[in-house]
Design a protein around this nucleic acid. Structure first.
Lengths: 192, 192
DNA sequence: GTCTATAGGCGGATAGAC
DNA sequence: GTCTATCCGCCTATAGAC
């Protein structure tokens, strides 16, 4: 792998784990196997490196998710499948999950607009198309944002689940959680 | 207000907005109307100040929420009411919301255990009691974590909602969101 | 309890050799 | 493209006067 890509990969892991301020250029350099000044041959400053990192993680994540929707089952099966695959991605891709949560904590409206329009809106549209097939008149914006909230939260709290009341082994299983989320969403959708 | 409390209030706002690493002792001192070294007469170091801040915000939040459940309506009304009041608190208390999200991004198991057992578990138990009245055999752990995920996410994304597909004015209203969350949760609960 | 002064370290970033 | 050396500012924290 080229130096440039190695930097992006290592920076993504560090920024996701520790946050922008807590990660130094020296940390990223060391993880990438170079010295800090060499980073400046690839990125003009720390902010640029961060932006490139975030964009790269989000772009990759979206590309992988879009592949899912090629198949054409019945709408309800499609919804179930896309929830399951989103859940798998959320469970696996801790870097994406933590980076998006960190970006959500940003207060800069520009960054939030970028996050919404360039990262989340595509995925939302995919969901929306399926939901409209199932019920043309329901409140899909609410359903989709609820879905994203649950997908993010359920997998983010995985490591602290057992400290919460009534946690069981099944609550650590991606298939169980995605099934329950599907049932929650689809029942409301069809009864609305 | 005494210096000590003024520091906690100002530190809470700064830590919630910018995160631990991004806030300097000078920032907190200036916001509190003193110089940085004076902070060390109240807290032994930055970490202690942060811990005290988080604990203070979470304790206050929980106390305010517990008051809600004194009234004894029918279980379904109680659920509706407690969801509404949690939603109002989430919408209003940006400092609590952002601090809890930042703590969720921590990877230190000790801090997560503290967050789960000392901050979230109480609230979970309140929810659980109501849910058990409505359906003794349902999966309440899943329902409650779903609820918390939705409550956090829906109000955290408020400022970027309009950049997402199909957003409408009603999606900025706390009463509408809490009603929809209630319907989502209660339908699943009663059909389970 | 608060201040000024300051220690000592680490941060981002640049200059210039190779 | 990568390095060593270095600048300079900000950071946490302490010493000691008032």
């Amino acid at each position: 792998m080229q130096t440039y890509d190695r930097i992006l990969v290592q920076a993504a892991a560090l920024f996701a784990q520790q946050g922008y301020e807590a990660v130094s250029m020296r940390d990223i350099a060391q993880a990438s196997g170079i010295k800090a000044p060499s980073l400046y041959n690839h990125f003009s400053d720390k902010q640029s490196l961060y932006r490139a990192t975030v964009q790269s993680v989000f772009t990759q994540h979206n590309e992988q998710l879009i592949d899912v929707l090629r198949s054409s089952h019945k709408p309800l099966d499609k919804l179930k499948k896309v929830i399951y695959l989103s859940a798998v991605k959320m469970a696996e891709d801790k870097i994406f999950r933590q980076l998006i949560l960190r970006e959500l904590l940003q207060n800069d409206p520009e960054k939030l607009q970028f996050l919404a329009e360039k990262v989340m809106a595509d995925t939302c549209e995919h969901f929306a198309r399926i939901l409209r097939e199932l019920n043309p008149s329901a409140d899909h914006h609410f359903t989709i944002t609820s879905l994203m909230g649950m997908l993010l939260f359920h997998f983010q709290i995985d490591i602290m689940r057992d400290f919460l009341p009534d946690a069981q082994a099944k609550h650590h299983r991606t298939d169980y959680l995605s099934e329950q989320i599907f049932l929650l969403v689809s029942q409301r959708l069809l009864n609305q």
